[in-house]
């Protein structure tokens, strides 16, 4: 049985990267798909993002990076999730991320990386499925 409370997802921007078009489109799309979405706004430190996720009891965190700093900031968020014992939160992301880097980030524990041109429907389906699983486990 799916729980009555809608899935809750954080959409985050980290570092100095101000490209927020994609993050905002994803935030709206997830909201329109029935989820509760919290958009962090720009320039968040990895620890702030993870704190927000824990405080809001989020099922997932999506991080958007288009500045090229993905190999620093994704691992930083992963580390913070581990440090806070919040690895159950589904951590995914997207941006201008070359295929090799995306593969490496997934190996490190990022659940999925969506690159430019990924259909919204695919992202929504991923978030619903994975965050839904997490909700069942955690309750």
């Amino acid at each position: 049985m799916p729980s009555a409370r809608p899935l809750r997802v954080i959409v985050a921007k980290a570092g100095l990267d101000g490209h927020d078009r994609g993050a905002k489109v994803i935030a709206r799309a997830l909201r329109d798909a029935g989820m509760e979405v919290i958009y962090t706004g720009l320039f968040q430190a990895p620890e702030q993002i993870v704190q927000t996720a824990i405080q809001e009891d989020a099922d997932g965190v999506g991080l958007s990076i288009l500045s090229g700093a993905h190999m620093t900031l994704f691992p930083d968020v992963l580390e913070q999730l581990k440090a806070q014992g919040a690895e159950d939160i589904v951590f995914f992301g997207g941006g201008t991320i070359p295929a090799d880097d995306a593969a490496e980030l997934k190996r490190l524990g990022v659940r999925e990386i969506f690159t430019p041109g990924a259909p919204l429907s695919q992202i929504i389906e991923f978030v619903q499925r994975e965050c839904g699983k997490r909700r069942e486990l955690v309750g």
């Binding site: 570092g15 100095l16 990267d17 090229g68 700093a69 930083d76």
Partner: peptide, 21 residues
């Protein structure tokens, strides 16, 4: 990005961004 946002390359905020964009 750090130059555009007013941070030196050794600032904490510049981590991972130096020389990229």
């Amino acid at each position: 990005m750090p130059t555009l946002m007013g941070y030196d390359s050794d600032a904490r905020q510049a981590r991972g961004e130096v020389g990229r964009c």
